[in-house]
Design a protein around this nucleic acid. Sequence first.
DNA 1: TTAATAGTGTCTCTCAGACATTATCAC
DNA 2: GTGATAATGTCTGAGAGACACTATTAA
Lengths: 231, 231
Amino acid sequence: MPVVSYAGPEQRPIATVDIVLVTLNEDGLRLCLQRREYDPHAGELALIGGYVRPEEDADIEASARRILASKARLDGLYLEQVRSFGGPDRDPRGWSIAIVYLALVPDERLAAAEAAGAPRFERIDPDHCPPLPFDHGRLIAAALVRLRSKASYSTLPAFLLGEQFTLPELKAVYERAMGTPLNDSAFRRKLMEMQILEEIDAKASATAERKRPAQLYRLASRALTEFDRTV
Amino acid sequence: MPVVSYAGPEQRPIATVDIVLVTLNEDGLRLCLQRREYDPHAGELALIGGYVRPEEDADIEASARRILASKARLDGLYLEQVRSFGGPDRDPRGWSIAIVYLALVPDERLAAAEAAGAPRFERIDPDHCPPLPFDHGRLIAAALVRLRSKASYSTLPAFLLGEQFTLPELKAVYERAMGTPLNDSAFRRKLMEMQILEEIDAKASATAERKRPAQLYRLASRALTEFDRTV
DNA sequence: TTAATAGTGTCTCTCAGACATTATCAC
DNA sequence: GTGATAATGTCTGAGAGACACTATTAA
């Protein structure tokens, strides 16, 4: 059998990974955007991203983790591939493919990375995001659709919190991620029945804002868990 | 601002689109695989696929539709991107990215294309699929997970049928796609309440097998519709 | 004790599954 | 009519939402 001539290197599209990094602060969900260091669009606010590097990346997720490490000094985050976009006009450098990842980072971890010298991010309200370079707007839209829908049937929102959290905190994150209020007793009932949480032998401290201290929990599994029903 | 040196063409990964083409015949869901014409793995059964061609494709879905047209003489199918896989070892030609698409084709359309001279497909039971070249096994697994889960909350299974179908036929497709039996009256109730179907002024003909003829329906929208609940 | 949040118990209403019943065809 | 499939009607049980009620802390 003949080996057919195939697309040589000069005919290959550019391949990049772009990361929709999301955090949660007291105001709600926030996109983490950086000003671009280099052209095209140097100085403009955009997603962090970079080239897939065949010489060093073991797979696409490795590219994403390398980019998170180099541009945000973050590792071990929740990370999920969303989808890929391609076309001749989305990048002035030529026909390109962007593989989009959704990454979730607890507020404190992001602040700690910045305090330790990582490049700074601007936290942008996804509902009031200015126009972005390239087609980053639609990349973000795709990632947020994934976030919102998967929030309702998985432990995904918990990855916006630190390792320990209270039930009222967890409920608030679910509401923020899903964009809809939840019933309190039903939320407790379902999470307890699903045995997703482990009780920690400690309670959150009471403050002026927090009267009765709440029980602390952690995820029973450190990996994402999907439910057969909705929270 | 400087333009940073970027990954030149010689450092770009290979980019291909691979299509998990699924049909439904009297035996159930079937993968449509072809024997490869060229090396690597010439003569072996595999997914249809091809290179992303920057010089002619407007986006990645266009690559997928071009491949479906050229390798199966099929157009207008239900087509959905699943995800992308990448790595140094999945293709002997080098570090490559495969963008996986799920495509659904009604049995009669596929048979008609083959009768009209299109390359022939083998229909493979996904539950008894032999080992495949490259990493096509995991590409198929990812596509089938998508098919099975999306079946329960969308009109996706209907794209395995022709334009007109009866409710018992539709229920059977949902059961095949989801892999679980459904309650008959609940299925009718929900589909009717969701107003997804349009009644056609005709009934299926009765046969030795089909006693009372069933009402014919078509999808109210030719596009995929997602539900807020499960069928 | 009061105020504020955390957590529990219970009622009701909705909806899905089960299944009996009716309808419509070929023979 | 008989037999088979199509379609409808009704009962029941599980679970979600609503909300009243109890618990625990700071001040």
